[in-house]
Design a protein around this nucleic acid. Structure first.
Lengths: 245, 245
DNA sequence: ACAAAAGTGTTAATTCTACACCCATGA
DNA sequence: TCATGGGTGTAGAATTAACACTTTTGT
């Protein structure tokens, strides 16, 4: 049996990219544009998440991985399936209906949503065929379908998860400074954190390893570089059962 | 358009029920039984989760609610969509193939899995048409399809969630004793908790309200009864941003 | 020398952990 | 009266929270 598309099931990917220099948590979206036949009228002009249908011989994870690769060329990034969206009317706004007519899309498509974590600069948007573009997660453009809601739910999941799992390092380069980690937490959570307390806490973790290196090419005092060791983390980690309701 | 079944999308429900008297966290599953035409051979004899296909005019949440109601008669129970399962081979074990032949089932069905929280005694299994049965979550029977994995992932999600959200009370009667809450936490998490510390912690919460009532009909010293106030919880609750990685 | 970001210590408050016995009740 | 589970207190340890100035470096 040849692999075929499952036309009513798709995977949509919320690609989070952190821009270290602007300290901005971004989402990668692609352009959706359609003119009337006479080109007199712009029918659709907004953005959507990248996504695609599932093939009959693929796992859902495979689909997500494939979709990310096709958009960014990247593989092996952190990914998480966080929610399925299947409301009967999730694709039925006027613009969406116009768009669906031009695509091989079932009107009642259920999508399995994933999010990915990576660094903005890992993605080369120059020769991108989908007119992909980064937007700060707190300044999203007009989005088609129910994709704004999908992004917001992904963001909520990320906020919670970054407090209890070491996924923050997926958004940072291999070598980072303590202040960079703090800035990232502040960007994601929208809070400010005391620098001394944060430093102490982080540096005391056995899996935060100080390198024999400092920043280079910075115009002020270069900071100490650290790395995160997954190996040490897995060894040291122990579940805590602290009830905090 | 008449509502029709979407044959390749289903919702499966992990129904968790807590049995206060035996202090057991149980899962409700239904019998799957099939004999050969000559009745000489038992082809399938195991259990599966309750589930059903999604109708074209339903949300996924609606489907889950409907499935629970059909099995138990209950509505308004706590429910959570926790994961979608869509591996191409998730229904392709030999027994599953035999079963599917007798059902209107697509071989490549993706299921959106939910779990429900309720009390075992709320469900009347006497006049149940599906031969539904409770099993302790740590002593599950042989399960068809990928349903054992689904249950285990639901259980993991529940373990995590009960530490940070007040869902524990969904598994308890409206009026409960502190020790009943402690027993339940211990059952779910598989740990032992110090009674004095636990009591103090819980009683100090403003949303744990001491009633002017004690247990009745118990054969020993009757315990103080409490209730959980969602109203107070929502008012008092404030997100904490404690980074515990 | 100066601008900018890196880096540093202390104290009080809170929360968590460990631990063992008395009490009230119904049988 | 006795068996059973309900209920209680304290002290040490660990963690968190609050708070402001000095140091280092490149320009």
């Amino acid at each position: 049996m040849k692999p075929e598309l499952i036309l009513n099931i798709s995977v949509d990917c919320v690609v989070f990219g952190y821009d270290l220099s602007t300290k901005s948590l971004n989402v990668l979206v692609i352009k959706r544009f359609l003119e009337s036949e006479t080109k007199k009228e712009v029918l659709v002009d907004d953005y959507v998440l990248t996504g695609y249908h599932v093939y009959t011989n693929e796992t859902l994870d495979d689909t997500a991985t494939r979709v990310l690769k096709e958009l960014t060329g990247l593989t092996g990034q952190y990914k998480k399936q966080f929610k399925a969206f299947g409301d009967p009317d999730r694709l039925l706004n006027p613009k969406d209906l116009i768009w669906i007519k031009n695509a091989e899309f079932h009107e009642r498509t259920t999508t399995i949503a994933y999010y990915f974590l990576l660094k903005t600069e890992e993605v080369d948007l120059k020769n991108n065929t989908s007119q992909a573009q980064w937007f700060p997660v707190d300044a999203l453009p007009e989005l088609g379908f129910d994709h704004k809601q999908i992004i917001l739910e992904a963001y909520e999941d990320l906020k919670g998860k970054c407090l209890s799992e070491p996924i923050i390092f997926e958004l940072l380069p291999e070598k980072f400074t303590i202040n960079e980690v703090q800035d990232l937490y502040q960007s994601i959570l929208g809070i400010t954190i005391d620098n001394r307390n944060f430093r102490r806490k982080l540096i005391n973790k056995k899996y935060i390893i100080a390198l024999d290196e400092k920043q280079v090419g910075v115009s002020k005092k270069p900071a100490q570089l650290y790395m995160f060791s997954k190996e040490v983390y897995d060894k040291v980690f122990q579940k805590n059962y602290l009830i905090s309701i």
